[in-house]
């Protein structure tokens, strides 16, 4: 049952990160939290025996999407926080 334990841990982690991304005041923290959601989602896909999807989600969700958000934050300096 180590797989089930890891699944529970990752699901709870992704939901907590999502709630944090909604509630936090700073947009930068929300971007990093959405990166954490994607990373735990990619490990979930690996446990669910979908390695193709896990590769895509790890590079896109945790890597490129976060960087694209950070570039966008760089260009809207001053207006990004609530």
């Amino acid at each position: 049952m180590p797989n089930l334990f890891a699944l529970i841990l990752l699901a709870v982690l992704s939901i907590l990160a999502a709630i944090y991304a909604v509630l936090t005041k700073k947009t930068l923290n929300a971007v990093i939290a959405s990166g954490i959601i994607s990373l735990s989602a990619s490990i979930i896909y690996l446990i669910l025996a979908a390695p193709d999807v896990a590769m895509t989600e790890a590079t896109i969700g945790a890597g490129l999407t976060t960087v694209v958000f950070l570039y966008a934050l760089k260009h809207v300096k001053g207006g990004e926080d609530d």
Binding site: M55, L64, V67
Partner: peptide, 21 residues
């Protein structure tokens, strides 16, 4: 093996992203 055009293209783009950063 696991992988393919979409994954490989994304990995290539992340290499270029590393150089840009």
């Amino acid at each position: 093996s696991p992988g393919g055009g979409f994954q490989g293209g994304v990995v290539m783009a992340s290499g270029i992203l590393l150089m840009v950063l």
